[in-house]
Design a protein around this nucleic acid. Structure first.
Lengths: 199, 199
DNA sequence: TGACATGGTGTACTCGTGGACACCATCCTA
DNA sequence: TAGGATGGTGTCCACGAGTACACCATGTCA
């Protein structure tokens, strides 16, 4: 992932970001020519090839088109770029309003957001009022955080193995381990979490 | 914007969302045929026309392609209160919806995402590797979590008052309170948090 | 100064894509 | 039970997209 990028390509990248913010796609070679002032589509292709090896774009899984990578949206903030240790930031501007969603949700059709009630997972940094991202029908492994259905209620716990049997382990010493009778009904696996501060 | 959508189109929409999560684009008519099992591209076009009038997709400004709308990214929000034996009702069209980015980001142009380094805020449920949502130029109050710049480095702490002066309080007994000399430089206020589990 | 890497031009070819049109099956309702 | 709205099929067409290739200008470095 060499960030080896010259000034010119950086400007091109900026134009691509602007276009993406409006159209949510990498423009066609022809559109790129218009945007950048190229006279030949080959220049556009070579540009994308360069951006690909720099890690800003990649081909879709079916190799049908270009798509942006996470890096496409990252940028250090200009006025502090000089400072040492400035981390890469993801600046959320208009068209990139979907970044968090894309970061968290892998299988939209199987994904449900579940609000967290109670503090039984407080030691795992999951608070009352947080919202967890749950992927249904995903094979749960020991160690995963899962949403299970116990006594007709949703409950969020860690799935753990105890003497060869699955149990639900809270992350709060005040709560007991749940040892289900018979079959344990898993609603889904927690794949992410969001929290909002200050109304 | 009539959400008037039948069950079938809802499934199609789900497939489109899954495809989009992988390829970051609306598939071509031909790909849609493969995904949905259509035999004719016209069916794909008509499907997108329907989804357009339902408000899930639209044309790009240059009319070159389809792009998803905000609605495309609404995720189902489980109603925890509904405990009784029908958790599958979430699958139904009805139920609450959540736009993750909209939930976390209120001022897109002033908001950046900053990855968390270290565990100085572990007792506040903010872990190494989490991503905090930071709103710049927001008036910070005592008690807010803030990203400050100390010794040319970014640091995430709670803003607190101590003897009438602002200090930066970690949420980890192993770290000391930071008492800045002179002016304290606040980069922004933490308004949200994002975490991902298990690659 | 000479050789090579790099970024851009121009041309030509092919296939995928979107779009139009006629037609068909099914469902719902009057 | 007739009729229309709806969702899907099959076919044809034109254009644009991506790609390959030969070539050129510029900058850089031994």
């Amino acid at each position: 992932m060499p960030p080896a990028m010259n000034e010119r390509d950086n400007d091109y990248l900026g134009s691509l970001r602007d276009y993406y913010a409006e159209a949510r796609r990498i423009p066609s070679y022809q559109r790129i020519c218009e945007l950048m002032g190229f006279a030949s589509k080959t220049a556009a292709k070579k540009l994308l090839d360069r951006l690909e090896s720099a890690g800003f774009v990649e081909r879709t899984p079916d190799d049908d088109a270009w798509m942006p990578t996470m890096r496409f949206f990252e940028r250090p903030l200009a006025d502090i770029a000089v400072r040492a240790g400035a981390p890469d930031m993801i600046e959320g501007t208009q068209g990139e309003l979907l970044l968090i969603d894309q970061y968290l949700v892998r299988q939209p059709s199987r994904t449900v957001m579940v609000p967290v009630k109670g503090d039984s997972m407080i030691d795992a940094g999951i608070h009352d009022g947080d919202i967890v991202v749950v992927e249904r029908a995903k094979a749960a492994q020991s160690g995963d955080f899962v949403v299970a259905i116990v006594d007709d209620e949703f409950t969020l716990k860690e799935l753990a193995l105890e003497k060869g049997k699955f149990v639900l382990k809270p992350h709060n010493p005040a709560y007991p381990v749940i040892r289900p009778q018979g079959q344990l009904e898993i609603y889904g696996v927690v794949t992410g979490l969001v929290r909002r501060y200050r109304g």
